[in-house]
């Protein structure tokens, strides 16, 4: 073997394999974002009490004070925890059902085609429209929120799992079969990892929907959770309270999204 030929090729490949340099302007974008936020908040503060009655729009300082009150008394975390619990239970149960059923249905083309119009029809219903029904069935406790969050997550995971299992490269499956792989091994080594990006996408899209489902359920009927906090503040004409609850909601969704993006980069580092 010729060492020189290999070495030069390897050097070239190492270059290809090196991580791309961090995109430039990252710091500037962060600065611009901060400026945008500060300007928006300052504008809001300036409008409030001068041009618009604070009764309608409150003000950043009042909202901040309200948030601080809720945080210091533990009110915020108590309600937040309830909403997170509802989302998590719905997310896990709905997601697992979605993967299992999606995987099973993918095994049979006929079954898939048979149920397709029905599943699509049910999927098309805005999930919030189901809330009154679930409240009728399951009362005003946590159960209807679990179901609402779960069903929102379920469909997205189900459809994506189905799509993923169908996308598997058949030549990879053939290669494994020729190596003597049993069906269970083919599922574990090829089909599951190959459909994993799709399944992950389903979960990623499903998470905010599950959160929305839980909050929507709370707003209909409940005495705890972020949805309740929003509704309750509005009921008392406490505009600062409404904005404070919305801020908490916004923060949670942003954090969830950022967390998922990080997880995604790590899970799919091979791409």
């Amino acid at each position: 073997m010729s060492a020189t030929g290999l070495r030069s090729e390897e050097a070239l490949e190492q270059g290809v394999a090196m991580p791309r340099p961090a995109s430039r302007g990252e710091g500037r974008v962060l600065l611009l974002r901060t400026v945008t936020l500060v300007v928006a908040l300052a504008l809001w503060q300036a409008l409030s009490g001068n041009l618009v009655d604070p009764f309608w729009i409150s003000s950043p300082l009042a909202v901040g004070a309200k948030l601080w009150l809720w945080i210091s008394t533990g009110v915020l975390f108590r309600h937040l925890l309830v909403t997170i619990e509802e989302t998590a239970v719905g997310f896990i149960v709905g997601g697992v059902c979605g993967v299992v059923l999606g995987g099973l249905v993918a095994q049979s083309r006929i079954l898939q085609r048979t149920i397709d119009p029905f599943v699509t029809a049910v999927y098309g219903i805005p999930k919030v429209a189901l809330a009154p029904l679930f409240i009728m069935w399951f009362g005003i406790g946590l159960m209807p929120k679990f179901v609402l969050a779960g069903i929102s997550v379920f469909f997205l995971v189900f459809f994506n799992t189905l799509a993923g299992a169908r996308e598997v490269d058949s030549s990879m499956v053939d290669a494994l079969r020729m190596m003597g792989a049993r069906p269970a091994q083919i599922h574990r080594i090829v089909i599951l990892p190959a459909s994993f990006p799709f399944i992950f996408l389903g979960f990623k899209l499903g998470l905010p929907y599950g959160f929305v489902g839980a909050v929507a359920g709370e707003m209909m009927a409940s005495n705890e959770g972020i949805g309740f906090l929003t509704q309750n503040s509005a009921g008392q004409y406490d505009t600062a309270g409404v904005f404070a609850a919305l801020t908490a909601l916004m923060t949670v969704t942003v954090l969830l999204d950022a967390g998922l993006a990080r997880l995604e980069r790590w899970v799919f580092r091979w791409r």
């Binding site: 490269d169 030549s171 990879m172 053939d174 290669a175 079969r177 020729m178 190596m179 990892p193 791409r271």
Partner: peptide, 17 residues
């Protein structure tokens, strides 16, 4: 499927993950 033989196909069948 003949598992006695190994088959090096033209397709790229490495598992990308």
């Amino acid at each position: 499927v003949n598992t006695e033989v190994a088959y090096l196909t033209q397709h790229d069948t490495l598992l990308p993950w």
